[in-house]
Simulated assay, not measured.
Amino acid sequence: MNGFSKEFEYLNKIVEAGSFSIAAEQLYIAQPSLSQFVKRLEKNIGAEIFDRSHAPIQLTEAGKIYLEIGREIQELQHSREKQIQDLGNFIQGQVRIGSSNYRSSTLLSKVIPIVKNRYPHIHITLEEGKTKELEDFILQGKTDFSIVLHPFFNPGLQYIELFREELLLVLSSSHPLCIHKDYTLSANSKYPILNPHKLFHEPFIVMKEGQRLRSSFFEFTTENGFFPPIVLESGDMSTAQTLAAAGVGATIVPAKLAAHCTAPIPPCYFSLRNFLSDWQVVIAFKKEKYLSKAAKTVIQIIEEITKND
């Protein structure tokens, strides 16, 4: 890592952590060393980068400018390296992918072994996060592309569509609505349809802030005029699905997760196509960003896998 990259790794970590002590701990360096590093940098540029009067620590206006332009410089350096590397016929280099835990386990777990087998000189790194974080990773130059949902939270992104994914309501198989088969068959899904009015007092397990599935839950309940009690918030869709199967509450999951359910007794699934649009799963990247041969190769393999899945 060169000095320039190290400098911005330190600054970004302080911003993410919100304090010098936490950032130093995560960087495995002493806090006084990190503080002195920032003070020297502030002296060199003639302005304070951080406003230390707030908790968590915040960037000053000068700090915002310094960090934003620094990210642009880093991105240009990264692009230069990739373009020079691509002058040869050999496909190699680092590919940085943004993905949710869910996509990593259900999609990238199939993609990465194929990449390693076909192209041993491509090195993949993963940046995992929530939906909006994955978009931010692209704009911040942390990833070459991210697997996200369209429409986006942020402008400035373009995309390649991979597939559409249905959203499903999940109930325990011991739920009265499942036992008594109080539902109808669907004309546009292999899953049956449940009247949402039967869920008015049903407790729900919902995703935490920043996850698209949380927005889908509130869209579904608001559009149908009911506000069920929230029994639990989870950051993991698989956990929510398993808890729903155990009877803790209802939840909403994407269809591909249903195929990977590990609950001892599988739950009941109901189509929400009459109430919620299918998710549009895409590969997103920054507009006018240079994608290396290695990145394009990985994208082609992802497309290959999703078409055959």
Rank of each mutant, 00 (worst) to 15 (best):
A258W: 07
P120L: 02
K181D: 04
D51I: 07
K116F: 01
I138S: 10
K142Y: 04
F270W: 12
R118P: 03
L272T: 01
G93M: 02
G18C: 09
G210V: 03
K82E: 13
I124C: 04
K82H: 09
E25G: 08
E165S: 11
E304H: 11
T143Y: 10
L76T: 15
F153Q: 10
S53G: 03
F270R: 07
P113S: 01
A23H: 03
L11C: 10
L171D: 09
F152S: 06
K6G: 04
T221Y: 01
E209I: 13
Q241V: 11
E75R: 13
P203K: 08
L276S: 08
A255M: 12
H201R: 12
I302E: 12
E303Q: 15
T221K: 00
S79E: 14
Y290K: 13
I91N: 11
T242K: 14
Y183L: 04
I124K: 03
V111Y: 00
G98A: 08
P176Y: 00
P32M: 00
I301R: 13
A24T: 01
E165Y: 03
S234L: 10
I14E: 01
E209N: 13
T297F: 06
R273G: 03
Q241T: 10
S53E: 08
I29Y: 00
R71L: 03
I193L: 09
S277D: 07
V170H: 03
S104P: 02
R80G: 10
S238V: 11
I91W: 07
D51P: 00
D309Y: 14
E68K: 14
T222H: 13
H150M: 02
E25R: 15
L108V: 01
P192G: 06
L162S: 03
L107G: 12
G225I: 04
G141F: 08
F275M: 04
T222L: 11
E61V: 09
G210H: 07
V111W: 02
Y159Q: 12
A255T: 11
L126R: 00
N44E: 15
F145V: 11
E48L: 14
L272E: 00
Q74V: 00
V282H: 00
S215L: 10
L213E: 12
F218T: 08
I193H: 02
F4L: 15
R212P: 01
L185H: 15
Q77P: 01
T222Q: 14
W279K: 10
E202H: 03
H175V: 12
K13Q: 09
L168C: 04
A62L: 03
H121R: 08
